[in-house]
Design a binder for these strands. Structure first.
Lengths: 190, 190
DNA sequence: CAGCATGGTGTACGAACGTACACTTTGCAA
DNA sequence: TTGCAAAGTGTACGTTCGTACACCATGCTG
């Protein structure tokens, strides 16, 4: 018989996605269809493999591997390479995209002025609050009290904002330029 | 005295960040420095406010509000709207993008054949394994042993694949069409 | 000032939990 | 084919958990 652990783990991951909680051994048992002691042994294997941790009182919590998603590279038909190869240390998408949670906000995109940078209407941007971003980065600026997503450029007359859509003009600030933060990531649901 | 709940909650969030687990009432009590019954009352308030949920056996798990990240809408200068307005139930980016963890894989994008759909070289796609996706969706297909991201279309001669880049031709399968899964989300780091 | 909701403490108890031990079954390797 | 490790079952046990009830202190409101 093939190894059933991936199937068991899948059940556990789906349960966790729903409840944000690793259930008790008894619940795991009925969840995957084995006895309670079978669940104990299964969890022992998962702990050994780095999918599950034990907290105070023996309560179970997910470990790093629990969130690791199978990653399928661009390579032809090679299904097996683990996510860590490309994503590096990061395991959850959150951790990959958000490096400094306390200074990070989400911004939803309106309009298509940055469409050539792959930022579409309805996308979410991960924005790190930082009023002095580097030249050339995509920034969230405040122009006339409105949020604007643009490239931050430097010209002979100082800083200005450049859209990534040839239908839109550059924005040259009349007085000063209010930068809200720097765009460090983006995500979207289809 | 001011309301100490935010302070308590902060302790709880720090603990959760470390252990990915809401501790028991007894542990909460020592964590925030009250009696066990004080912890019970505190958690009751958190449940009422939508920060905590109760799972099977009365075990505690984080609810929506527990993860709430500041979200800045497209609205002019309105900083305050909570993430739930736009993101719906999901709070973490992972949970927003990945609905079925066990059948979801990540695929990294090579090439620019889907650039008009906002899918660029180097992006990550969230792909739900599903060999029978709906017409019109973006799918991961296997063509000549290679992964290809394309729109799934239906024509008079059956299914075919359409890129989102006018420099690329449609792909009409000679025999059958191997569909790996459906693209449900996308993310990228800048 | 009386009333009452709020936040907190102490004690008690049954149920559920994690753990341990003995045993069975299966598959692979010597 | 014998041996052994892995995977699973059944039963039992002490501990911890969540829950309930009674009670106290504080602060706001009619």
């Amino acid at each position: 018989m093939v190894n059933k652990d991936p199937f068991y783990l899948g059940r556990l991951q789906d349960y966790y996605a729903l409840h944000r909680l690793i259930p008790s051994y008894a619940e795991i048992a009925s969840l995957v269809g084995v006895s309670k002691q079978g669940a104990v042994k299964f969890i022992d294997r998962m702990i050994f493999a780095g999918y599950i941790r034990k907290g105070a009182g023996g309560r179970l919590s997910p470990a790093n591997m629990f969130f690791a998603r199978p990653h399928v590279g661009g390579a032809p038909a090679g299904f097996a390479s683990p996510a860590t190869e490309v994503l590096g240390d990061a395991i959850t998408i959150d951790e990959y995209l958000v490096e400094r949670p306390s200074s990070t906000v989400l911004v939803s995109v309106r309009g298509d002025s940055m469409i050539d940078a792959g930022i579409h209407d309805g996308d979410f941007l991960i924005v790190e609050r930082n009023t002095n971003p580097n030249i050339g980065k995509i920034v969230v600026a405040i122009v006339d009290g409105d949020f604007t997503i643009k490239y931050l450029r430097s010209g002979s007359d100082g800083l200005f904002l450049e859209p990534a859509n040839e239908d839109y003009p550059n924005i040259y600030p009349e007085t000063s330029l209010d930068i809200y933060g720097e765009v460090v990531g983006q995500f979207r649901k289809f």
